[in-house]
Amino acid sequence: MGRRSWVGAGLGAALVGAVGVGLLVAPAGASAAPPLPPVSPEDLVSSVMTAQRGPFAGEVEVDNALGLPAVPGVPQLADGTSTVRVWSGGEDRGRVAIPSPDGERTLVSDGTTRWAYDSRDRTATRAPAGDHGGPPEGQQQDPTAAATQAIATLRQTSTVAVDGTAEVAGRAVYQLVLTPQPTERTLLREVRVAVDAETRQPLQLTVLAQGQGEPALRVGFSEITYGPQDPSLFTFTPPPGTTVRDAPARDGEQRPEGDRPRSTVGDGWDTVVIGQAPQPGDGRPRDGQDGQDQRPEGAPDLSALGQPVSGPWGSGRVITTAVATVIVTDDGRIAAGAVPQQVLTEALAR
């Protein structure tokens, strides 16, 4: 055994390590844009609206850099990457698994009943499937006309284009890109939707903010398989030892929404929504913080977020994220929009 062979063995080991680590670390490959026949934005949107939604299974990756304050109980909202597993059986049947390191939240819809199961406290919440919003209004209209109309409305404030092709979750996709007109005062730079070229199913949504190279939000499939799914995925039987609850009626949640005076200032990308801040004792669950809203100190908790600001419109606190700004004024108004702070203060001063 000469020294040479030891060196060789060492180099071999280093090579194995480098290759192995490289295989593990390497991202799933940025591949070349697949060649696809050109398509106009109108055709693309109308084909998305008419497409048959077949059954599929996949993994959705949420890559979040919105800079939201951490909300307990909803780890998916905090900055970072999380993965959600999704199965769809078509006909309003589906299953979503939101894993956490030591538990899982499972949502199952069998077409008539929606179940939400939380493994941490072993509770299953049941709700009838019907009252979760009506069917999309676009379905009643002629999809082509609806798509043309939608794009015409968008074109008043944005540039709509099909920006080439790409590959998402191993599928060839068209990239539909919405860019705000230069006159729009918004924090957003671009919104991209990747649409599967074959099935015309949207596969990925990317939101890019001004002055940021990395997307502020990217939600999309990292893996998708079309095809029939095991029907047992879309049924749910509460396991023994589970607390089964019926979800509270939804109209209780919606009524305060309607009562509250709400106005919008501006249109397009720099729309500002002005509303009333939820008052303590509203009984409306906020931000998943159970019990927070029962306390009279609920309001100070909300105002503890953000930075204090003041101006001719009054004073309050501003919460800034990568894609949106919210001002909560001391007199209980809320102004929010995908706009810089100045646009909000102008809207409040109006």
């Binding site: 055994m1 030891w6 063995a9 060492g10 071999g12 080991a13 194995v16 390590g17 192995g20 680590v21 295989l23 593990l24």
Partner: peptide, 20 residues
């Protein structure tokens, strides 16, 4: 996979050192 990389590296270093 990650563990197997550690196994290969550890085994290679062990053999290399034990030979000398």
């Amino acid at each position: 996979g990650r563990a197997l990389v550690y196994v290969v590296l550890g085994a290679a270093v062990t053999v290399w050192q034990m030979r000398r």
